[in-house]
Simulated scan of single mutants.
Amino acid sequence: MNLQQLEYFKKIAETENFTTAANLASVTQPALSKAISKLEAELNVPLFERNGRNVKLTSFGEAFLKHTNLALLEIEKGIRELHDMVNPDKGTISIASTYCIGAYFMPYIISDFLKSCPHTKFQFNHESTSEILNDLKDGKIDLGFYDNIDDLHKHVEIKSIPVKKEEYVLIVPKNHQLSCQTEVSLKDLKDESFIVFSEGNKDMMLSYSEFIGYTPKISIEPNEVSMLGGLVSAGAGITIVPNTPLINTNTLSIIKIKEDLGYKTIYMGWLKDSYMSPMSKKFRDYVISLSSNSYKLE
């Protein structure tokens, strides 16, 4: 068994087609088939059910793929570690955040960090909180940023720390009847139409009802958080959001809410007792320093 056979096996499992996998691996289809046949002979089990050039994993193949992915990931991490040892001031930082946090929090953090470390490269994805936590556990990302950690007890391998706390506010268009108010009560908004960000398949109507204490009238449920400000500015409705620097006060009015809605807390997480590149550590420590200074929790 060798590394090349494992890489071939993974590509076939992903594409379910020998020809496609051979093209991706830059190898002839007969050579690919021969490599897999040798691997199956060594393991003494069939890894694929063949139907011409199309295939699918057997139960043996499904079990072996999990270990193959881990093995290839470890090799990749080992190569990264060696590169980091040679060039500690350069490197790639792999991070993921929820859509909301990625829209208004991460751009400032990353751009400021790049001013002092311009040779850094970032791999950045938007994911749900559960996907981020799983990717941290699997070693696919270095750092994750999220705000919903109700089930964090299930992820004991992950270290999570709060790095930002934001107050919830109401935003309305400048021509709205409430725009001149500095504070408003939720009970006074029952006749208003709300714009609610719909992330993934969450039941946003239910969560929003719990959030404000009654079932609101929902006018629009955009699936892009960046659309909220524009829709409110256009008069399509009002919304409750964390108070961030990205709110355009030229077209929107920010109003405090009398009731205590708590705070939106942003957490940064990483895998405990796992290798982290010098550059990733530097970025992690940079974010932590911001949380105790300009982004200090109240």
Rank of each mutant, 00 (worst) to 15 (best):
L65W: 03
F194A: 06
V287M: 14
Y108A: 11
F124W: 12
K190R: 15
S277T: 02
Y168C: 00
L133P: 03
T251W: 04
R80W: 00
L271N: 15
Y295I: 05
N87K: 10
S179N: 10
T129F: 02
L57T: 13
L231Y: 04
T92E: 11
H119G: 03
F283H: 06
V55D: 03
R284G: 08
T239P: 02
N134V: 08
M268S: 10
L178G: 14
H126T: 04
P88R: 09
S274I: 14
H119R: 13
N148D: 02
N23M: 13
I247G: 01
Q29K: 12
T58N: 00
K217E: 03
C100F: 07
L114P: 03
A31G: 14
G102C: 06
G200D: 03
L246W: 12
F124Y: 15
S198A: 13
G78K: 04
L189T: 11
N243P: 04
A236L: 10
L246P: 08
D188C: 00
S94V: 10
Y168I: 01
N223W: 11
G235Q: 11
F211A: 00
I132Q: 04
E49S: 13
F105T: 06
T120Y: 01
K165A: 11
S33P: 05
K38S: 12
F124D: 07
S226R: 09
S97A: 14
S198W: 11
